[in-house]
Design a protein around this nucleic acid. Sequence first.
DNA 1: TTGAAAGCGCTAACAG
DNA 2: CTGTTAGCGCTTTCAA
Lengths: 331, 331
Amino acid sequence: MATTIRQVAAEAGVSIATASRALGGSSAVVEATRERVLGVAAALNYTPSRLGRSLATGSTGNVGVILPDVTNPFYTSFLAALESALGARDLGILVGDSHESLDGERALIRRMDTQVDALVLASSRLPDAEIVAASHRLPVVLANRRLDAAAIAPAGLSQIALDVGPGFAQAAEHLHSLGHTGIVYVDGPPQSWSGRQKRDTLTRACARLGMRLTIAPTVRPDFEGGRRALEAVDLDDTTAIVAFNDQVALGLLSALREAGVEVPTRVSIVGCDDSLPHGLAWPPLTTVDSSSRTLGELAAAATLGEGALRNTVPTHLIVRDSTGACPAASV
Amino acid sequence: MATTIRQVAAEAGVSIATASRALGGSSAVVEATRERVLGVAAALNYTPSRLGRSLATGSTGNVGVILPDVTNPFYTSFLAALESALGARDLGILVGDSHESLDGERALIRRMDTQVDALVLASSRLPDAEIVAASHRLPVVLANRRLDAAAIAPAGLSQIALDVGPGFAQAAEHLHSLGHTGIVYVDGPPQSWSGRQKRDTLTRACARLGMRLTIAPTVRPDFEGGRRALEAVDLDDTTAIVAFNDQVALGLLSALREAGVEVPTRVSIVGCDDSLPHGLAWPPLTTVDSSSRTLGELAAAATLGEGALRNTVPTHLIVRDSTGACPAASV
DNA sequence: TTGAAAGCGCTAACAG
DNA sequence: CTGTTAGCGCTTTCAA
């Protein structure tokens, strides 16, 4: 058994309360006593039990973070940013992987909500009502998702989202200016909030520019999903592809290479996230920068009650080498 | 405030003890009572407080996992495997990122050790003595690291490691058979246990095969580190490079491409981990497969007290297209 | 089969 | 400045 505050108090010849105060750095303890207690604590190698403290104070020092996929670099750097910011405040992170599943997410929330001070939900699949319900029990930070505008956001709910509008509009304009007349958008999961934002933005932009837009589905928004997605694309009729995220774009890139289709000569590709180290992909990927690190930092701020309850990370297009002139146009 | 068992008991007209038994599924409760309690609990939307339970039972239902870098795919898939296995048992994961730092690791352990049932340390930088000390306080699973053979392993300590021997020996043999007469090994962090294993294996293999071995350092074992590492490599005198891991290999690949050095025509590259989706790198990377997923699964088993206390994941070379005949040999 | 009561380790009024 | 006393929410003897 580990040392308890009781033993420290006994050994130091003070009451438990005084020991607690000395350890907690309360000013209401005379110097000599404090030193004695601290000395004994050190000698006994005492570490306060977070459990006991949590129960007594009603705050655990942990926050729960639920992600759709711990393996996806987008969430991974989101998590890294979050954990840096929270860790600096000595807050711990209870992490859960919902495996892109609604029920998984529910189970994780149930498991976490009595042992954390706040909940961070990344790209949540939960219906608005359930999110609101959760936010009545404890502070909830919604990352990469937003409630329907109509819903009244409860006080305990923060919403940090990416504004994919500018980035995806720029992507369409960029391709348009290169002479492309149509875009294939390889989508994310159907229930994905951010997927809908991207789809809608492209739809509007294409309408404005007079471009054709085709939507192709993915099973999962990852590398393998991207490879598979190409099967549903009519390559004879496609010169430009925009992907839900960089992972999917890489998968497309890989499948295209195997099919002997040159990028960007034959087909242009645009990714999203800029989650990859620069230079990892070949050719370097034109992508919509939507920093998940920034998302993580803002989510951390919201968790700490320091940032705005509602915040937006802007995006923009980064042009690299995976996009080029439309081959048809150059004929 | 959330509903407590007290309210459930009151509402159901039973004592707290009975309510607890009914909810806990004890057989010593008559059917009618159980149903009433369960009904009330559901109606009141009761969720037992994990904190209260933990304090009473002495077990938290959480395990702490400390990684050097949540962003590194090697640890990311390790974590994913671990969380799947533990999550299936309704165990939560408290995750910490030590940022490859010894002090960071110490701080995380201190923060976690009073609120978890077990600690999983991945690629720990801690001295043997501290690991042993920790394992006296709670079960510790050492992943991708092993104590010095001389040390007596305490009962509460499991050690799951990769046996990089076969894989790295095969890598050297493979390069030798392709006509290469020397290898540059781009190393991981100096304190890394697994780095030493790799270095030692290569040293022995090269001695046996009569090959030259040069060791080049990295600052951090990631993509950027790999790019930087190339600066220290004398390209005029190098035909084969073995990297500490796939991230570093990708960085090297990227820097080589920028330098206009063709792979594998001019230089062959071998990675380690096979942590990347197949086809992500171009050319596809010859790599030492050392599945971090398997590592995670074994670590989970050890955590659950089901696997062996000491276990080994074998490795082997996967030959793809980033290695080829030595250019000098073909002259 | 059920209830009363004693903690788990800690903090926080409230007295002194 | 320090000690006494209640709890935080739950499980678990021990009696009834």
